[in-house]
């Protein structure tokens, strides 16, 4: 027979699950691990390259992540209701093509192009809503379908070609328009030495953070993501809010598409394709920020910046570009491990 003392149970910590095993360390890693790694990276890169921690380079990093961040904020909103908008990349590409087409092919103003771009984003959102909310197709497959459809549609409206100034329309005709300088302002100009795209990102991020974290609509969206039945029984119009989430996601993608179009100054085929994975990665990395363990806009922003810092720093260190995807993937996996394996399990019995 053993006594109480040698059972070592006398002062077991109160926490349970994995955190009990890892003790307080696990809890700290869970909350601050990702921010600590980001901070460490910043220090390492700064020590290795004095160019890294200059104001100019900071702006370069922020500019490089601005489009990804805006797309990712939309993905975050779609994930708060337990959904997943896979069509954002295709949406960005579609908006790029629509804006280019409006200005170059139809010779209309930049303002018209912006309106057309937003309308295009809303169209994607409408299709998603129709499929997911009305027809009850599961989110993932529905938005995958939308992704395909709009990648295709972007090709159809431009006959499969990139849209550039002076392009041949066939039959000896040449596209009459060009990119409106007012439109290009979004991609090239600076206000108080800060690129417009960065400012747009900051504004959209602020709006989404306030909306999701503090507004009553955000509360409802999170309730739906947490337990849709409970939300419904509490009188939340679940379908309306799910549609709202996809509309916000579509609008964010449209804004990103406009920024991208203005930066490129032309409509490139497949320009939006890279943004899906990057945005999803930023959102999922965001889960691990401050132990949120759920989609959260501040975390998403940190996630996007994290990806940008990593690429920028590695490039400065002359790490071959072809290893960058791997490094980003490893970062994502590490963040997922933090969110899922190190997170204190639900304290309820299982």
């Amino acid at each position: 027979m053993t006594t109480v003392q040698d059972q070592g149970l006398v002062s077991a910590p109160a926490a349970t699950g994995t955190a009990r095993r890892l003790g307080a360390l696990g809890g700290l890693a869970y909350r601050y691990g990702l921010l600590a790694v980001l901070l460490g990276l910043l220090v390492v890169f700064s020590l290795a390259r004095s160019r890294f921690h200059t104001w100019d380079n900071t702006l370069i990093i922020l500019q490089s992540v601005s489009i990804v961040a805006v797309v990712a904020l939309g993905v975050t909103v779609s994930m708060t209701v337990g959904g997943f908008d896979l069509s954002v990349g295709a949406n960005v590409g579609f908006v790029v093509m629509v804006t280019a087409q409006v200005m170059v092919r139809y010779n209309l103003t930049g303002a018209t192009a912006i309106l057309a771009g937003l309308a295009a984003g809303l169209l994607v959102a409408a299709v998603n809503t129709l499929l997911i909310v009305v027809a009850r197709v599961p989110d993932l497959v529905a938005s995958l379908g939308t992704m395909f459809a709009f990648q295709g549609l972007a090709l159809i409206i431009t006959s499969g070609q990139s849209v550039s100034v002076g392009m041949d329309l066939g039959g000896g005709r040449v596209a009459p328009g060009r990119y409106d300088p007012d439109f290009l302002w979004f991609g090239t100009a600076k206000v108080l030495s800060i690129p417009v795209a960065v400012l747009v990102m900051i504004v959209i991020a602020a709006v989404v953070i306030v909306f999701l974290t503090y507004s009553r609509w955000g509360r409802a969206l999170y309730a739906i993501g947490g337990n849709p039945v409970a939300a419904r029984l509490a009188g939340i119009p679940v379908n309306r809010y799910r549609a709202l989430a996809y509309v916000i996601s579509g609008l964010c993608a449209a804004c990103a598409g406009i920024l991208l179009s203005a930066r490129l100054g032309r409509g490139d085929v497949g320009a939006g394709d890279v943004y899906l994975l990057q945005a999803v990665a930023a959102t999922l990395i965001g889960f691990a920020v401050l132990g949120a363990n759920r989609p959260n806009p501040f975390g998403t922003l940190v996630g996007a910046v994290f990806l940008g810092v990593l690429i920028n720093g590695l490039t400065m260190l002359n790490v071959p570009y072809y290893t960058q995807t791997f490094v980003q993937g490893a970062l994502l996996v590490a963040a997922l491990l933090l969110s899922y394996a190190v997170a204190p399990r639900s304290r309820r019995a299982s």
């Binding site: 509360r219 309730a223 947490g226 039945v229 029984l233 939340i236 639900s346």
Partner: peptide, 20 residues
């Protein structure tokens, strides 16, 4: 169980039907 949102506080549950 159908009325509980996991990880939510008591306060949030109380006000969920009355967010407005």
């Amino acid at each position: 169980a159908e009325q509980i949102v996991p990880t939510w506080s008591v306060r949030r549950h109380v006000t969920l039907p009355r967010v407005r």
